[in-house]
Design a protein around this nucleic acid. Structure first.
Lengths: 255, 255
DNA sequence: CCAAAAGTGTTCGCATTACACCCATGT
DNA sequence: ACATGGGTGTAATGCGAACACTTTTGG
């Protein structure tokens, strides 16, 4: 079992803070659907959020960025913490002695992994197309899943995902969103669909457009999207100056 | 130095999670001013937020409640976590070998206390008059301080306080506030002053009243406040049914 | 020419804003 | 009587919600 040393499950407590982990909820948007990045553990055949442990000399934010990179190959992502999950009973139900032995993990690592963990939830919004998800050595797969169709996840990861979504919805009330989720150029209906997906309800086309335009965070381009089986929609792109100002100053919006 | 064992600074790592602490920002409202509950350390002559460590078998929320009780005597408070502060350099500048020795703390405790700590920030709103702040054995004083006049605090506690205030302001946008901060009966100008203090700006008397009343979260009582040097204002009290519903469903309000 | 989707404008009602007058109380 | 602060009403404005017609495109 050389894999054990490669993936550094041995004596991790010297390198990492004990009792504290990080889980990342990474959202993307593709084909008009909100996606979340998940890993399938090759030990326990369960899907999970990409997570990991915190080193002694890094902030949580640095740790989250590193963990996401190590576990999924996704790089240069701005992650935001949103809550700590601290149920004393939260531990991996897959971390049972027999399954650990099957996976070739020794009992001393089991002790460490089976102790209590608090986990800090982070979330990020990233542009789907810029990402090439790569599973790490712990995982057999790394894939985007539709948020609406996520199966049962490891530990309390479903709860963490739900909480991240809720945070996203709140954020929508007073911050612009989309720059990190949509490609450089996009259509108004695409942006609208993003809002609708996050909010979980439909919005009026015309009112949506008027409102978004009133914020001035998007500019209409002279081009249109071609090759569609109906009237060609205009393309838009974000006006980063205004967008970033809105990020800090907030919007009045009431969705 | 018997105090050492009484206050349990010896070998705390067996009882508590290492590397992780909690700090509580407790807001009150009195004489038309927003207050925060602070302790003065009797070791280091610095003011600090009430904080402490997490036990192995409790959630963060349970820990925060316990810590607040132990350190200030304040009981039955609902605390909400709002952020983790994780700068690796955040440690107590007062925890220096000489000041530790002066305080009669041995070097082995110093090692533990001088290690890196992450801290989870919690905040709470409580009714000023229901509280009798009592410093614990670590502290010489436990007092309410005007939020606007808080001096330089231990470690990064000023930053934590600022972040809590910011959270409070955001919360005001979509949740009712005041039930935990005001006495049973209060006047409309008092409620308004609370909002103004949190928001840091003045509001129009008449518009404020109309808006609050439109939410139906307060009921006007038949009584008025007497003994004031001007027209006696009506008393109000919260309608808990509506108030609690608004807590979960949110308000439309745009302050 | 028709279905599907996009572009555009108008009306209505409510909420926010700004503002003015009267009332009660203690000095 | 008067200064201070509280109670109430109204007009103007702006924003969100609801809604209909026209235009473009591929089939």
């Amino acid at each position: 079992m050389t894999i054990k040393s490669e993936i550094n499950l041995n004596s991790p407590s010297s390198e990492y803070l004990s009792h504290l982990s990080i889980d990342c909820v990474v959202f993307g948007f593709h084909e008009n659907q909100l996606k979340v990045l998940l890993l399938e553990s090759n030990f326990f055949e369960e899907w999970a959020l990409p997570g990991g442990f915190v080193r002694h000399k890094e902030t949580l934010e640095e740790a989250a960025t590193r963990i996401l990179q190590e576990r999924t190959g996704v790089d240069e992502i701005f992650l935001t913490q949103f809550r700590v999950f601290s149920d004393p009973e939260r531990k991996n139900p897959g971390f049972k002695p027999d399954s650990m032995q099957k996976a070739g993990i020794s009992m001393e690592n089991f002790d460490w992994l089976n102790q209590r963990f608090l986990s800090v939830g982070f979330y990020a919004l990233i542009e789907f197309s810029k990402v090439n998800p790569q599973p790490d050595l712990y995982s057999s797969k790394c894939e985007w899943k539709n948020v609406e169709e996520v199966c049962s996840l490891m530990m309390d990861h479903n709860e963490i995902l739900e909480a991240a979504l809720e945070t996203l919805r709140l954020q929508l009330r007073y911050q612009p969103i989309g720059y990190n989720l949509l490609p450089e150029k996009f259509t108004m209906p695409e942006l609208q669909k993003l809002y609708e997906t996050i909010l979980g309800r439909e919005l009026d086309r015309r009112n949506f457009q008027r409102k978004i335009l009133s914020y001035k965070i998007v500019k209409r381009l002279p081009e249109r999207r071609t090759g569609v089986a109906y009237k060609a929609p205009y393309l838009y792109s974000f006006d980063l100056d205004v967008y970033n100002r809105a990020l800090t100053d907030g919007l009045s919006g009431d969705w």
